[in-house]
Design a protein around this nucleic acid. Structure first.
Lengths: 258, 258
DNA sequence: TAAATAGTGTCTCTGAGACATTATATT
DNA sequence: AATATAATGTCTCAGAGACACTATTTA
């Protein structure tokens, strides 16, 4: 059927009796868009490249998949290494795989990108290789006021941000940005940081407290030292889905109906 | 940092000066969950395996990524090959990448799975290798009344179905299941087939016709030969997002609020 | 005329958005 | 007191769900 591809021999669609020499070696890596909220701003961890290509540009952390690992395991391992914690204390999910032939000028590298997020992440550890790593406010990176990104990492970061923004609509993902126990005003500040716009206080609280199993109220309140009543503390519940979703406001769209 | 992984030498997170011999060869393939609607039933294309492993089991079509291709290009090529058409006339998107070390017992294979769908796909071509390929009703595969699936393809298929079901909620993806021009009753039958439950006629029509740019009405009607008035014909508009979404009914959930 | 289907009207109820009100805390 | 914040109440409107009604076609 195919005239363009070196089809597998025989009827097997999988490479049992396959001539591997026809294919150049392919490296498979994981890349990570790690988000946290620092100073009220959605922030992402980037690493400054010390070598060419893209020397001096900034890149998403990443690394190779070991022979005995799947991508998710490799991503958890990288998370622990990059943040210097034994076990990364947040959420991780696969984002998308990037496979353009020229995305790395040296080798064919297929990268399985992931999104991770956690509350209160510390400044990244200085690696044994003394490479430069730091948190950047996402807004600055998008504005172009921040660093230049290496490879296709600008595209990956865009996709990752859109994933987080949209999952805040129909899941309780925002709760993974705050340490337990948390207050509703804290959750609201997560929405403000990620969307750039906070939902109405009353509506947000109603959504979370009226979704069965989303959050569990404790009988304690947080003393934040400032003025006003002490907000009630909650813990995460088992329910991950917000139904119906908490939709972010869309930009006004013009266009004709039928 | 890592004690478990053979870390790249130096500070480079990408494999410029990397000892490739430390890693066994990894094959990268694309797998395809191709959906269409036949006889009112959501159906998926499967191929019977002629060789071990999983001889006699059924698998999603797939194949290798060529050195000069990205995954999407490879998927389009496979689509054309499997359906026997020069250009696959439907929608394609990346689903998820599957990378468990043991998912293929012979080699390390990382598979970038895709979801494709189109209206009115013909019976699959008999390949030059005379392998068996056919459409299966998704319902039968899920029931276990259908074929046994090879590798981790049951998991991939499940993920693919869930992707299609959920995208029908917040996009106009249903329109890619019908040939242009189409009628609203046809679109409704798509929802019925994918969700197992049709939305209310009036509400569905309101949603599509009141979303600016979603569909464009023609001034023609389809003669379907049967009783009743001839339904109005539409074409797809540029808008892909349904906002607010057309949510499918959720199963009753129990659980305690706060 | 009966039956089938397309298209539209409309009633009700949920829930989002917006804002007011009350309660609780600090200075 | 004045100010700040948390929590809740409530008014309004958009839109989903359900269903009725009319129109159009075939048998």
């Amino acid at each position: 059927m195919s005239t363009t591809s070196p089809a597998p021999s025989g009827s097997d669609q999988h490479p049992a009796n396959y001539d591997a020499s026809k294919y150049p070696s392919v490296f498979v890596t994981v890349d990570l868009a790690i988000f946290t909220i620092r100073g009220g701003a959605l922030s992402v961890l980037l690493i400054e490249r010390a070598d060419d290509p893209f020397r001096g540009a900034w890149a998403l952390p990443g690394g190779f998949i070991d022979p005995d690992e799947d991508a998710e395991t490799a991503a958890w391992r990288e998370l622990a290494e990059e943040t210097g914690m034994e076990r990364f204390p947040g959420h991780l999910e696969q984002l998308k795989t990037y496979s353009a032939p020229g995305r790395d000028p040296r080798h064919r590298i297929v990268s399985i990108a992931h999104v991770a997020l956690a509350p209160d992440l510390p400044d990244p550890v200085a690696g044994s290789d003394a490479r430069n790593a730091r948190w950047w406010a996402v807004e600055d990176v998008l504005d172009g006021e921040g660093p230049t990104l290496a490879f296709d990492h600008a595209e990956i970061l865009n996709d990752a941000i859109e994933r987080v923004r949209s999952k805040l609509e129909y899941t309780t993902l925002a709760l993974d940005f705050v340490p337990e126990p948390f207050t509703m005003p804290e959750v609201r500040r997560v929405y403000a940081a990620v969307w750039g716009q906070a939902p109405d206080r009353a509506n947000l609280v109603r959504k979370f407290t009226s979704t069965p199993g989303a959050v569990v109220a404790t009988d304690e309140r947080r003393d934040h030292g400032g003025a006003g009543p002490k907000p009630l503390l909650y813990r995460r519940g088992g329910t991950r889905e917000l139904y119906p979703p908490l939709l972010r406001p869309r930009p006004e769209q013009s266009g004709q109906g039928e």
